[in-house]
Simulated assay, not measured.
Amino acid sequence: MGLVKNAPRYDALDSWRGICACMVALFHFDVFSHLTFLPLVRHAYLFVDFFFVLSGFVIAANYRSRLAEGFGIGRFMILRLGRIYPLHALTLLLFIPIDAAKDGIGPNLFQAVVTNVFLLQGLGVNPQNWLNFVSWSISAEFAAYVVFAVMVTRLGTAKWPWLLPIIAGPVVIATMSPHGMDTTYDYGLVRCLYGFALGVVCFDVRERFPLLKQRLSPAAETLMEAASFVLAVGYVSVAASSLPLSIGSPLIFALVVLVFAREGGSVSAMLTAPFMLFVGTLTYSIYMMHPLVRAFVRAAFLLVQRVLHTDLFIPYALNPGNEPAPIIYLHGSLWLGDLLQVSMLLLTILLSVATYRFVERPGRDWARRLARRDKVGALASTAPTAKVHEHAEA
């Protein structure tokens, strides 16, 4: 039996993930441009919380019942590691020489490598982001997988345990996080569990209330989708200016997940067009590879700046309260900045095609084969003494 059977797919939500990954990339490129100064892009770090909410929803849809029925924590973790670790390992190896050239070889680099290897870099053990700076969220999400597997195995499909991070997460972020909702290496796990738990609860609510799955007329479905899309875009555009609003962003994303899981309107139809599905498939690679594109482009501009004796960077605080940081400045031309930023995004997508084909997919397939062998071994060891019920796997 294959490891993917009857697993629910939410194509429109996959495309949403792809859009969010592209927005996060634009946010991190740090170019003086029209795009950078759009409020939606300036606050696009909040789209990481969409990943967390959607992850909780999809993981609950695919694994909650199976784990409660004996799927096995070990097999679950093998599958999740196979999904995230190969590309994480590749970007880690590529960033080691970059950080060594920038900051030198020393205790910080050693700590960075060790914590990244063991996926600890987003759990509050480092004083800053090192190496691939977005990988803090991979660390936090892997910890959320562990929490999910243990809780479901021990407590079954109960909903109440997930209310704790939903209630405590915003309180901790509001009172303890020095960067508010833009917390990463320090309170990233709290941020992740807050969104992840919301996703799990969203799935539970959707299962308990059939009305949330029942299709309305195409016009009504389209209206709901368009309204939630506009709400999400408008909310992110203004949310970062207010701590309470930014902390509430996962709630907005939970609404988006519930609406687009229905896939009943014209907006979903556009999101499930081939190109959008293609971008959605590349989401993880886009997310993990865009810091590498950023690093190489900035290195190239530093070299050009040195050779031509011209200033191609200026210190600039893109958001209120942030310390000024050097951003690429093409002699004040916002249009050239737009062109550079779009080119960086296209380059990221091209690289992502390669990493998906040669890193992500082989790693995922290897993990599935390993998990299948683990299952076969478990069946063989228990066959003489017990009757084993085979479960569908994903």
Score class of each variant (00 low, 15 high):
Y187A: 12
I167T: 14
M176Q: 12
R206F: 01
G199W: 05
A174H: 08
Y187H: 15
A197V: 02
S228Y: 12
V190A: 12
S217V: 03
P170T: 06
G188R: 11
A220H: 10
L231H: 05
D182G: 15
F209R: 09
S237C: 03
L223S: 05
V236I: 13
F209D: 02
S177D: 04
F203I: 08
D182L: 08
R191G: 10
D204C: 13
S177N: 06
G169C: 06
A232E: 00
E225Q: 04
Y235M: 08
P170R: 02
V172I: 14
G180Q: 03
G169R: 03
L198P: 01
T175P: 13
D182H: 15
S237Q: 08
T222L: 00
K213W: 05
P210L: 10
T184Q: 11
P178Q: 10
I173F: 14
V238N: 13
R215Y: 05
V201F: 07
A227W: 04
I167F: 09
L193C: 11
A227G: 02
A240Q: 05
S217E: 03
A220Y: 08
G180L: 00
S228K: 14
C192W: 07
S241G: 15
L198R: 13
Y185D: 00
A220T: 13
A239N: 06
S217Q: 04
S241E: 15
S237Y: 01
P170F: 04
M176L: 15
I167S: 05
P178K: 07
S241M: 15
Q214C: 01
A174D: 07
T222P: 00
C192V: 07
L211N: 07
Y187T: 09
T184P: 03
V238P: 15
V238C: 13
F229P: 11
T183P: 01
A168F: 03
E221H: 04
Y187N: 05
H179N: 15
L211I: 13
L231N: 04
A239V: 04
L212S: 01
D186N: 14
Q214V: 07
K213C: 08
V172D: 15
L198D: 01
R191N: 10
K213P: 01
G180P: 03
A232N: 05
M181H: 10
T183F: 04
G199M: 00
L212V: 00
G234P: 01
Y235W: 07
V190H: 06
E225K: 03
V233K: 13
C202F: 06
F196V: 02
F203G: 08
F209W: 07
A197M: 02
G180D: 01
R208W: 05
C202H: 06
V190K: 02
D186E: 15
F196Q: 02
V233N: 06
T175E: 08
A197W: 05
V172Y: 14
L223E: 09
L189W: 10
G234C: 03
Q214G: 01
S177K: 01
M181K: 14
L211E: 04
T184R: 12
F229H: 10
V205R: 00
V233F: 13
S228T: 14
A226G: 11
C192I: 07
L189Q: 04
V233C: 11
P210F: 04
L212C: 02
